[in-house]
Design a protein around this nucleic acid. Sequence first.
DNA 1: GGTTGACAGAGTAACAAAGTTTGTCAACTT
DNA 2: AAGTTGACAAACTTTGTTACTCTGTCAACC
Lengths: 209, 209
Amino acid sequence: MEPLAPLPAESLTRSTRDQILNAALTTATTHGISRLSVGDVAKAAGLSRQTLYRHFTSKDDLIAAVVVQETSTLIEQVIRAASGFDSPQDSLEAGFLAALIALREHPLLDQLVRTEPDALIPLLTTGGGPVMSQVRGVVELVILMGQPEIDSGHLRRTADLLTRLLISYAVSAPDDSPEVIANFVAASLTPVLTANQPTPKISNTEVQP
Amino acid sequence: MEPLAPLPAESLTRSTRDQILNAALTTATTHGISRLSVGDVAKAAGLSRQTLYRHFTSKDDLIAAVVVQETSTLIEQVIRAASGFDSPQDSLEAGFLAALIALREHPLLDQLVRTEPDALIPLLTTGGGPVMSQVRGVVELVILMGQPEIDSGHLRRTADLLTRLLISYAVSAPDDSPEVIANFVAASLTPVLTANQPTPKISNTEVQP
DNA sequence: GGTTGACAGAGTAACAAAGTTTGTCAACTT
DNA sequence: AAGTTGACAAACTTTGTTACTCTGTCAACC
């Protein structure tokens, strides 16, 4: 359950570690998570089970490392995609689009949602869980990239909404293409995001800031 | 699995049927779904198991009837709440608000999401399942009430998005009050909904109508 | 329209035996 | 220093068995 550095003293070769991580990813993708054994991963990586235990303290540690690697890559992709735009809407749209495509094309995520939804979906959709909070953090970051001066209430609300949409799209793919969805979502939310009022229109229902 | 009328010939008393449905709802709320027995429901309704089987052909039939009753009530509430507004935004906001409150205050749904999420959440969040399509149907209806002339692509996209948000809020309650959420969502989506162009802003990414 | 009790078959719980898998050792190779 | 092998107890799964509860239907009765 330790986040990093389970290495003995100096540092083992990085390539062996990566090799193991890749093997874990591919075996998980083909055989599923529930039936994933350390022996299988070691075999796929072309080394022995005991060698694997020199790089990762436990099976949980290995799985955690795979998750960290995959999420980091994903987050990097999204942030890179959202960078270098003048308008906040373009930035949001590009980031959302990159996220949609990356999620849809992620082989392991895709496989797991299809074959082991009962284990995965509650994990993704539960508000208290780590997934929603991490995703929301990234979404807030992307919004802030396009609009550093934004009202914090707006930011929180919008990030929460976008997070829920992203996870929903990841869990069950929409009919429309990612491009259409991203365009639609960005166009819908940017005006409200850009506005200065805490709530965009005073209506007949009460509003609590 | 038949939708209605499992009655023998003429028609049994409606009150007994309702009594059973209420008993089923309350026992399910207190004891959960997985441990729900027909015997318990009959006991709670103050009649014998065999009498219950005169009104419902099977346990599944009983559960289906409860679900139909609850969803009908919910849908009625939402549609009534959305009626009688001039502006599409007010109509949408009121409908969305009613749905959020009804979902949050529904005792059985609330209990199930907390105690048996692994069984329920995949059912709710799966795109192919009956829940999303039925909810989307109602959402489309509410939007059409406020805006009968709307472009069908807009309608479909917006209804899909709102459905995903509703289900997400039902599964994990947001930090903000239902009032704030409904106001925010309606304010975000109404402008796009009201616009005439198929896509609200032509951006650097391709758009498929 | 309602009740009771009885009953076969389906489904679930409990649990022990058999089999995997995990995590750790010490001894050995390159 | 990094990796390999085989051996091993403890933890966890799977499998098969048995006992139980629940469903759905019966016929006889108010």
